[in-house]
Amino acid sequence: MIAAAHFLALLSPGPDFFLIARNSLSSGWRVASGACLGIAAANGVFIVAALAGLAALSRESTWFVILQLIGCAYLLYLGVLFIRHAGTSGLGSVLTQDSHVARSSLWFGAWRRAASMGFLSGILNPKNALFYASLATMLTGPYASTGWKAFYGIWMFSVVLLWDLLVAAMIGNQAILQRFARVLPWLERVSGAMLILLAVGVIIFMMH
């Protein structure tokens, strides 16, 4: 459920999505791949920090219980937010971008700038830190071992990078983008429902 909730949350466009979209539409997917790598690197920093930070907390400690409750509350908040504002992400603004702007830019320089912008976009977004800390608190019992944390860390980093690269490659296709815009409200509702179910499930588990 943690892996599924993380992936579904990626489907809902945020600042990172629009950064990738604009880079892909203006400079092509190869330049946009720099933004993808920068965003994934920023996510990786938060993933490592969240998982490593919890290693010092005992499952029975008061601080761990408080952290779990805060994490559940944040996931519930995100879930309600996704459902409440489904279909209002403003994806239509991306559809009108000029796909031929800045194609004459020096490729490596443009790629490096995109990577820097992607990393800053990800690392300066406080929601990323809260989201990964919330997911990390869900790992309890045998799933809180070093091996499982490494597995989830690698999984989440890889999914962020691969999904963003897929978005960058497909975003220039107007037909695909228009279809995505049509199903986006339902994707956001499903994402919200998954986050709420995950939070409720952990709360029920804690009560036992």
Rank of each mutant, 00 (worst) to 15 (best):
L177K: 01
G14C: 03
L69M: 15
I47S: 02
L54V: 12
F82N: 01
I176A: 10
W29L: 01
P13T: 00
P126R: 04
I171H: 09
K149Q: 09
F119Y: 12
S121F: 03
S93E: 12
R59T: 05
P142S: 08
W111E: 02
F17D: 00
F205M: 11
V160M: 10
F17E: 00
L76G: 09
S145W: 15
L187G: 00
I171Y: 15
L195K: 03
A181R: 00
T146L: 15
M156L: 07
L54P: 06
S99C: 13
A32L: 10
V48K: 04
W107V: 11
R113P: 11
F180G: 01
M138A: 02
Q178M: 10
G28Y: 14
A4I: 10
Q174K: 07
M207K: 07
P126V: 06
L54C: 11
A150W: 13
L81T: 08
V31E: 07
A56D: 14
C36I: 07
R112E: 03
H208C: 09
Y74W: 15
G79T: 08
L139N: 05
L165R: 03
F18A: 01
A168C: 05
K149G: 03
T146R: 12
H100R: 10
I196A: 11
Y152M: 06
A40N: 01
A32M: 07
G92A: 05
N125M: 12
W111I: 01
F119I: 06
R113G: 12
A41Q: 03
C72K: 02
K127A: 12
D164W: 12
I196H: 05
D98Y: 10
S105D: 15
L57M: 11
A86Y: 09
L198P: 09
S104H: 15
F82V: 00
L135R: 06
I83S: 08
L10H: 02
L54D: 10
D16S: 07
G141I: 11
C72M: 13
A110K: 01
P126L: 10
G44E: 02
S121A: 08
A114Y: 08
F18Y: 14
P126G: 09
I2S: 05
N173F: 15
W155G: 00
P13G: 00
Q97W: 14
T140E: 13
A136N: 09
S116G: 06
S12V: 14
L75K: 07
N43H: 12
N125E: 14
A5D: 06
M117Y: 13
I196L: 11
A114Q: 01
L106Q: 14
V159D: 07
F131N: 07
M206G: 13
I83M: 13
D164G: 07
C72W: 08
A41E: 06
G28K: 04
R84T: 08
G92M: 03
A193D: 12
I39T: 05
L187E: 02
V94T: 03
S191T: 11
L120Y: 10
G44V: 01
S26R: 05
L81H: 11
L106W: 15
Q97C: 07
L187A: 01
T88I: 09
A169Q: 10
I171M: 14
Y132M: 05
T62C: 05
L51C: 04
A102P: 15
K149E: 07
A9G: 06
A49R: 00
G71H: 13
S116D: 03
V167G: 03
H6T: 00
F119M: 04
A42D: 02
T62R: 08
Q178T: 09
V45Q: 04
S24Q: 04
Y132Q: 02
L37F: 13
